[in-house]
Design a protein around this nucleic acid. Structure first.
Length: 392
DNA sequence: TATCCACCGGAAGATGGGGTAT
DNA sequence: ATACCCCATCTTCCGGTGGATA
């Protein structure tokens, strides 16, 4: 009981020196393993130094392959080294601005034009943007991160529009685009009109391999952890595991952070392989818990239906069966169930969020359906998480 | 080889909730 | 109050689809 009066805060950060460094949002001064991409992107942007409009560029690669980091790194370098450069970089994350209207809203804001976040006709926003930009004196580089999300809704209408503006702009102005996407086939998903007029240089971001991941972790450990508080083998272990499963640097860094936290909570003075092993487990759980918490009610009810079917070892947990079970639960919950068409779509959404693994089952005369192979966590654990949210 | 199952997923439109302008 | 805008979510409609089966 006396312990309650002991101030333990002084030992809370026994291992961690700077927590920010252990988050993936932190952009270090050098990006291990992405030297080539940095070089090529810088080369393309170097046209700005001779006052030429740079080519459009597309960054393609899976999550956690350094796309955003590279773009931020290089644009930052340009701003620092050439403060008088006649150019402006505007970064827009399309996961926040999923429509053409909202991206345009952001672009306007970056030019100090205040427009309402909704309610205006699209064309008015476009005209305001064109007016404002025409009276400026810098070349514009628009960076559209997670552009897949925008293209999915808008089909490339905004890209087309921005591209076309170049024909009406005076010689000293230009709009270049850097589009960043997770999927390779996103260029094909543009509508034909856009595709024929938009041909960016492509930069590929392959998954990180083990040595690269090790270098990344080493860098973070050097910057974010106290000297001599971690075992090199722990970093090697994380690098090996992540290289094998995904090559996702974000994940590797997450695991390192979690391992450090676990070690500290144990009052251990060193981060060991054992901590890394434990972290590997809890990172998954933490991630799933976070995504589930943001799920709307019907998504949760569907998750619960799937959980029960998997627990019962249902032979064919396809859309039809899931829908039946979901409907029962919705009624029990006092909400009117959605249609099967919608539930079918939600299953794809849950898949995209990494909560379930789906496979098509071509059953011949038994018909075709999507079948849930497994979930991100064992059904029992998943049920527990749902229960904590009041879903049962 | 034709049939047929049990869905799939695109397209389009309804719904309701956010907003602005007059 | 009225007439517009934007937009995410959901429903309605409907032409596919792959392979087991007859």
């Amino acid at each position: 009981m006396e312990e309650a009066f002991i101030d333990t805060s002084y030992m809370r950060y026994y291992i961690i020196k700077d927590k920010r460094v252990l988050r993936d949002s932190y952009i270090p001064d050098s990006l291990p393993g992405r030297e080539e991409q940095i070089f090529r992107f810088s080369q393309i942007m170097a046209d700005l130094l001779s006052d030429q409009p740079p080519n459009d560029v597309s960054f393609v690669g899976k999550p956690g392959t350094g796309k955003t980091a590279v773009v931020k790194h290089v644009t930052k370098k340009f701003k620092e080294e050439y403060p008088k450069l006649r150019a402006k970089f505007v970064y827009v994350n399309c996961s926040q601005a999923t429509t053409a209207y909202r991206v345009l809203y952001q672009l306007n804001r970056s030019l100090q034009v205040l427009v309402p976040p909704s309610g205006y006709p699209f064309d008015v926003l476009r005209d305001k943007f064109v007016d404002a930009y025409s009276s400026s004196n810098v070349r514009l580089v628009v960076i559209l991160d997670e552009v897949d999300l925008l293209v999915k809704r808008d089909g490339g209408r905004l890209i087309y529009m921005l591209n076309r503006l170049n024909y009406d702009l005076p010689q000293n102005l230009s709009i270049s685009m850097v589009v960043i996407s997770n999927t390779i086939d996103f260029l094909e998903r543009l509508d034909p009109r856009t595709r024929s007029s938009f041909e960016p240089d492509r930069l590929i971001f392959p998954p990180y391999n083990q040595p690269q991941l090790y270098r990344i972790l080493r860098q973070r450990a050097d910057l974010g952890l106290k000297l001599g508080t971690w075992e090199d083998e722990a970093l090697q272990f994380i690098a090996a595991k992540v290289a094998q499963e995904s090559g996702d640097a974000r994940r590797a860094i997450d695991i390192l952070r979690m391992a450090a936290e676990i070690a500290e909570n144990e009052r251990s003075d060193r981060l060991t392989v054992r901590h890394a092993e434990m972290a590997l487990q809890s990172v998954n759980e933490e991630e799933v818990a976070i995504t589930i918490r943001t799920l709307p009610l019907h998504h949760r009810l569907i998750m619960l239906a799937i959980t029960d079917l998997l627990e019962k070892r249902e032979a064919r947990p396809g859309t039809g069966r899931i829908y039946e079970e979901y409907k029962k639960r919705a009624n029990r919950y006092g909400v009117t169930p959605l249609t099967m068409r919608r539930v079918s779509g939600i299953l794809r959404e849950l898949e995209a969020q990494g909560l379930v693994e789906i496979q098509m089952d071509y059953g011949g005369a038994r018909g075709n359906t999507k079948v849930v192979r497994r979930m991100a966590l064992p059904p029992k654990l998943m049920k527990e998480l749902l229960r904590n949210l009041g879903i049962r």
